[in-house]
Design a protein around this nucleic acid. Sequence first.
DNA 1: GCACGCTGACCCCTTACGTCA
DNA 2: TCTGACGTAAGGGGTCAGCGT
Length: 257
Amino acid sequence: MLGDAPGELYYSPSGLAMEAFDYVNPSWRQIKKGKGRGKSNKRRFSDEQIRSLETIFESETRLDPRKKLQVARELGLQPRQVAIWFQNKRARWKSKQLEHDYAILRADYTQLASRLESLKKEKHALISQLEKLKDLADKGAAAASAVTDGDRSGVEDETKTEPPAAAAAAAAAAAAPALLLSDGVSSIKAEWNLGILEEEDDHHHRHQDDSESLKMNMDVMDKGSSLSSTRHGPSPSLNSDDLLNDSSPTQWWDFWS
DNA sequence: GCACGCTGACCCCTTACGTCA
DNA sequence: TCTGACGTAAGGGGTCAGCGT
């Protein structure tokens, strides 16, 4: 391994001890110290060191002190450098994870917004259809009433020769119960809700895989740590499926204009 | 058992520098 | 060669848990 050469001063603070690394890691580029940073000769780790650290990080995102010492010895780094590398790595990993989460949420939102638009259109079409039927029913009822008022003597003939308007009224009356005219909109909402939930179920199962994977990833980072803010309490759920949850105080149709 | 101080580990933000287009 | 964006090692402050007194 890199730090196996005997007699190297790996563990003293930066400065003299770092000279040994130039011998061990000739690939390192020495960086001249800047202003205000004391004696910090900042060097990039070698590719091999990075590879090793990445490999270790894949299996454990945190190192116990003993392992940290071992890794530091093997890679010819100071334990503090290993600790800082892991710290920075966790921060970078978390940042990427946030980007990933954001992308998923955004895709989810786009999908929901698109479905909302199509549901709005469907709603308007059905309301329009409902009003036509209502109109038809009103006209039919008026015509039927005119017939009964106008010719009380011909009651027995009514069943034989039903006028077109009365026929329309009968048809409308037959259609009306199916649409529940008295409370048509809420009934339609209920039917749509059922249909959507069935459809949503499919989508939900598909999306659940992603959510579970995310949760697992974050759980990995949470092992004894605070990466997903467990230290400060659980994160709020960001699942957009909640919009369709019946227990939600705000129903999805409340967002309709 | 409880309060207090110390210490180490960690997170977060920032700085300073290297690298690259 | 210069420059700005981006990546990264490291500094510093704050918080928390564990431990001894």
